[in-house]
Simulated assay, not measured.
Amino acid sequence: MRRPAVAILLLLLGACAPATEYVRAGTPAVQRDADEQDCQRIAAEQALDESFASGPKYPPLRDTQFTVDGGGAGEPGGGITASYSRRGARQYELAEYCMQQRGYRLVQVAE
């Protein structure tokens, strides 16, 4: 019962988050979109590579209850969550870094 309530709360908070977009002086929207798509592709590949380097080599390969010491989340002996379980967050960081390296900055969009 607690998990659905937390999920609903997170969705509501996400709906309140301000809209953002990348900007770079003199860059048309078409070029920005192409750069962002390219950075997302690069970031997804890199995050996937990193997740395989630090994650289990056996099924199920999914972003759930795996931990460093082999215990599941909430189980006795469960340890710290391994880094590969944060692939989505890492992909976001890598994509943002890629866009920054191309000269873009993330700004809030006026609604």
Rank of each mutant, 00 (worst) to 15 (best):
R2Q: 15
P4I: 04
P4R: 00
A7E: 09
A7P: 01
L10E: 15
L10K: 05
L11V: 11
L13E: 14
L13F: 14
P18D: 08
A19K: 12
T20E: 15
Y22P: 13
A25D: 08
P28R: 00
A29W: 01
Q31P: 04
R32I: 05
D33S: 13
A34E: 01
Q37V: 10
C39A: 13
C39G: 08
Q40L: 08
Q40I: 05
R41V: 07
I42R: 06
I42G: 06
A43H: 01
D49I: 04
S51I: 07
F52R: 05
A53P: 06
K57W: 05
Y58L: 08
D63F: 14
D63Y: 14
T64L: 10
F66G: 13
F66T: 12
T67G: 12
V68Q: 07
D69V: 03
D69F: 04
G71I: 02
G74S: 06
E75S: 14
P76W: 00
P76V: 02
G77H: 03
G79C: 03
A82M: 07
S83A: 10
Y84T: 02
Y84M: 09
S85A: 14
S85P: 01
R86G: 15
Q91F: 02
E93W: 00
L94P: 06
L94E: 02
A95G: 10
E96W: 00
G103D: 10
Y104D: 01
V107T: 10
V107F: 01
V107Y: 01
